Computed example of a mutant assay.
Amino acid sequence: MAKLIETEEENLLAEAARSLLDKSAPLSHLRHMRDSGARSDPALWQEMVAAGWAGVLIPEAAGGVDMGHAAAHVLAREMGRTLTVSPFLSTAVMAATLLRQFDDATTKARLEKIASGGLTYAFALDETAKFAPDSIQLTAKKRGNGYTLNGKKRFVVDGCDADRILILAESEEGPCLFDFANTATKGLQRDALEMIDSRDAADLTFDEVEVTGDALLGAAGAGYDILKPALEAGQAALAAETVGLSQAAFDLTSSYLKERKQFGTTIGSFQALQHRAAHLWCEIELTKSAVLNAGRVLDETPKEARLAVSVAKARATDTAQKSVQEGVQMHGGIGMTDAFDMGFYMKRARVAAEWLGDYGYHAGIVAQLRGF
Rank of each mutant, 00 (worst) to 15 (best):
L257F: 10
Q137D: 14
S171A: 11
S135T: 11
G218L: 05
T139V: 15
P133A: 13
Y361L: 05
V93E: 05
Y361R: 05
G327Y: 01
K23C: 11
A71N: 05
N150A: 11
G159T: 06
L99R: 01
A129H: 12
M1N: 07
V74G: 05
R39Q: 14
R370K: 14
I5W: 02
A54I: 06
S19E: 15
T242Q: 08
I284V: 09
F263C: 10
M48F: 10
L193P: 03
A240Y: 02
F206A: 06
A162S: 15
K23Y: 11
F270H: 12
L356V: 12
G371V: 11
S269K: 15
A239F: 07
E283Q: 12
Q368R: 15
L280I: 07
A230W: 00
L168Y: 03
Y345M: 03
K130Y: 09
Q325N: 15
G80S: 09
V366Q: 08
G221C: 13
A105R: 15
D191R: 03
M94S: 07
T106K: 13
A115C: 14
L356P: 01
G221N: 10
S254P: 03
S254Y: 03
T97A: 11
A201W: 03
K186R: 14
E173D: 10
A363Q: 13
A236I: 02
H73F: 08
S323Q: 06
F102E: 09
E47T: 15
A132I: 05
D22L: 14
V49Y: 10
T139E: 07
A70E: 01
E354P: 00
L119A: 06
A96K: 06
V65P: 00
A353K: 13
K23P: 02
K108F: 12
L292A: 05
D203V: 05
E354H: 12
G343V: 11
L4R: 10
M48I: 02
G218R: 01
